[in-house]
Design a protein around this nucleic acid. Structure first.
Lengths: 194, 194
DNA sequence: CGACACATGTAACACGTTACATGATTTG
DNA sequence: CAAATCATGTAACGTGTTACATGTGTCG
């Protein structure tokens, strides 16, 4: 829902045309996440379908400006003022993979951890330095926020992976067999026909 | 792709039926991410469509066992042995929201940060303690890996949010207006008909 | 002239998610 | 008996993502 809500939030500032929306999103998020232009138009149509934006006529320059509706404005405000729900954490592919690898016979967890640690280290080094000058313009502040998020994420990943490595030296996990079948309950064979 | 690959990796251990797959996924990932049963069957059909698994006949108990194919086995092995690509980081809704909030007039970044910090603190306290006994069974190790991932994520989020709070006391971002229009290039109005 | 950025759009697909239907069996 | 669990499936939808088509204006 990030793209959808982001476009809505930007449109709440004033009418924009599709291509412009991408530029605004880029400027305001430090150009970290590339956004395919096609997705913009796609999303705009869905927002229109939901009554959150209106498609304007093309102006003399050929720009199709989209305007936010009252409902859209309300939703944008609600989104911007509500905390992101992290209560039940999103599926983390890396954590899933490592957890599964620790329980499956074919996998080499240690190698996986070590490989992942190498890439994490590289990513950490590739992050731009955080320059928070007190007179930074808002776009720079936004960029700093995003970069900081990436930094803590990578650092956390590193500490996490190191912790796993330590743990694996103490305890080497043995593969976990498929659970033994318990006596069957529920629908017997072929009882559902359509 | 996590669900899809996870099921494939488990099936690489041996044939399973749908309901069983959910239990195995649960056991092997610390029961952290609830998995709707419907999605299992859904995903299995898609895997079959792609030639990665075969649907078996129902046995005398009515269990429909799914078997992995050679192609599926290869893909499972490839997935389990390849590092997760974190090169271009996934979109982080919270980071996007805060970055946007820092550039939009209507939003109260400080309030948002503070609210998010409170929930992060609560989540940190709600995390189960990490008990890594040296003789832990593989499922416990897997669970520990997942919990540790959550812990570093929350801790990182906290440090990040505190950093933003500090930054905001030094520099209060002013809203960033929509970019001024540059002289038009490209397709003029109405030049595309269908 | 050719390459590239600007600009709008369409079509298809992937995965994930949920709601619903159906029914047997166990347990309180 | 009622409720919960086991079990299989269907149908529909949502967002995200990409490939493609089309065309103009600018710059080297």
């Amino acid at each position: 829902m990030s793209v959808r809500q982001s476009l809505l939030a930007i449109l709440d500032q004033g009418p924009c045309y599709g291509y412009q929306l991408r530029a605004e999103f880029d400027r305001r998020t430090g150009s970290v996440w590339p956004l395919n232009v096609g997705q913009i138009y796609n999303t705009l149509e869905r927002l229109e379908r939901d009554g959150l934006v209106d498609r304007g006529e093309a102006d003399d320059q050929g720009h199709v400006y989209w305007r936010i509706t009252a409902a859209g404005s309300a939703e944008a405000a609600a989104w911007l003022s509500s905390p992101v729900d992290r209560e039940q954490p999103a599926r983390d592919e890396l954590a899933i993979k490592l957890a599964l690898a620790a329980t499956l016979p074919g996998a080499d967890v240690a190698a996986l951890v070590s490989a992942q640690r190498a890439t994490a280290l590289r990513r950490l080094g590739a992050l731009p330095p955080t320059t928070t000058e007190p007179d930074a313009d808002p776009a720079a502040i936004a960029a700093a926020i995003v970069v900081a998020a990436q930094r803590v994420a990578v650092e956390g990943e590193l500490r996490w992976l190191e912790g796993i490595e330590r743990m694996l030296t103490e305890t080497r996990p043995s593969p976990l067999p498929l659970a033994a079948e318990r006596p069957r309950r529920g629908r017997p064979a072929g009882s559902v026909r359509r």
